[in-house]
Amino acid sequence: AEIMKKTDFDKVASEYTKIGTISTTGEMSPLDAREDLIKKADEKGADVVVLTSGQTENKIHGTADIYKKK
C-alpha cells in the first residue's frame, strides 16, 4: 500500500472504496510508525493509506483510513 496525502487522495477518491481504519501506537520513530501503518494496510489488502491523525509526545499515535481500488 502507498501513503497518500489527503489533498492528493481527494483528486482520485472516486477510484477507491474505503475498507477500514488502522492505527499505530508506541515508542517508535515517525518512520517506524509509517512503516507499521503500511504493513497493517498491506495485511488488509489495501492499495492506499490516507493519514487522518498523528500525534507525538512521549509516544507516537497515528490513524489512517485504508482504501482498495474499485
Rank of each mutant, 00 (worst) to 15 (best):
K39S: 08
E35Q: 13
T7M: 10
A64V: 07
V49Y: 03
G45F: 06
I60L: 11
P30I: 11
T21Y: 05
D10G: 05
E15C: 15
I66T: 02
A64Y: 14
T63D: 08
A41T: 03
K59Y: 13
G54Y: 13
L51D: 03
I19L: 10
A1N: 01
E2H: 14
I66D: 01
V50L: 03
M28W: 04
T63L: 08
K70T: 10
I60K: 09
V49E: 01
I60P: 11
I66L: 11
K59R: 09
K44N: 08
Y16V: 02
Y67R: 00
T21P: 01
E27G: 12
I22N: 01
K5V: 12
A46Y: 01
A64M: 09
S29V: 05
K39H: 07
I66Q: 03
K6S: 08
K68V: 10
S14T: 11
T52D: 09
I22T: 02
G54S: 12
D65M: 05
K39L: 06
A1G: 02
E15G: 09
D8E: 09
M28S: 06
G20R: 00
F9H: 01
T25R: 09
N58M: 11
K44F: 14
V50P: 02
E27Q: 12
T7H: 10
L31D: 15
E43R: 08
K44P: 00
A46S: 03
M4C: 05
V49T: 01
T21C: 11
S53K: 08
K40L: 09
I38Q: 05
E57T: 08
S14A: 13
E27K: 10
H61Y: 15
S29T: 09
T25I: 10
T24V: 12
K69Q: 04
F9S: 01
A13R: 13
L37A: 04
I3A: 03
T21G: 03
A41Y: 00
E43T: 06
H61P: 10
E2V: 15
L31V: 11
Y67P: 01
K40H: 05
A64G: 04
I60R: 10
D42R: 14
I19V: 06
G62M: 15
K39T: 04
S14Y: 11
L37C: 03
Y16F: 07
K11M: 09
Y67I: 00
R34D: 05
T21A: 07
K68R: 11
P30K: 07
L37P: 00
Q55M: 12
K68L: 08
K70I: 13
S14F: 10
L37Y: 04
K39I: 04
T52W: 12
A41D: 00
P30S: 13
T63H: 08
G45Y: 05
E2D: 05
E43S: 08
L37G: 00
A13W: 06
E35D: 10
Y67L: 01
K5Q: 13
G45N: 07
K68C: 06
I3V: 07
Y67S: 02
T63A: 07
E35W: 09
Y67G: 00
V50H: 03
D42C: 13
K59C: 14
G26T: 09
A46E: 03
L37N: 00
Y67W: 04
K39Y: 04
K70Q: 05
K39A: 07
D65W: 05
K18Q: 08
E43K: 08
K59D: 14
L31W: 13
D32A: 12
T24N: 06
G26L: 12
S14H: 15
K59H: 12
M28F: 06
E15R: 11
T56I: 09
K69M: 07
A46H: 01
H61T: 12
D47L: 04
V50T: 02
D10C: 12
H61F: 13
M4D: 02
I38Y: 03
V50N: 00
A41F: 01
K11E: 06
Y16S: 01
T25Q: 11
L37W: 04
L51E: 03
K70H: 09
K18C: 11
D32E: 12
V50W: 03
G62F: 15
T52Y: 08
K70P: 03
L31E: 15
G54C: 15
D65I: 07
D36H: 12
G26H: 11
K39W: 06
K44T: 04
S53W: 14
R34Y: 14
D8G: 03
D47H: 10
L31C: 12
D65A: 04
T17M: 11
G45H: 07
I60V: 14
V49S: 00
V49I: 14
D8A: 05
D47F: 03
T52E: 08
A33T: 07
K18E: 03
I60Q: 13
H61S: 13
A64P: 02
K6F: 07
M4Y: 05
L51R: 03
A1F: 03
G20Y: 02
K59M: 14
G54D: 14
T56W: 14
K69A: 05
V12W: 04
T24D: 03
D47S: 06
D36A: 11
G54P: 15
I19R: 00
T25M: 10
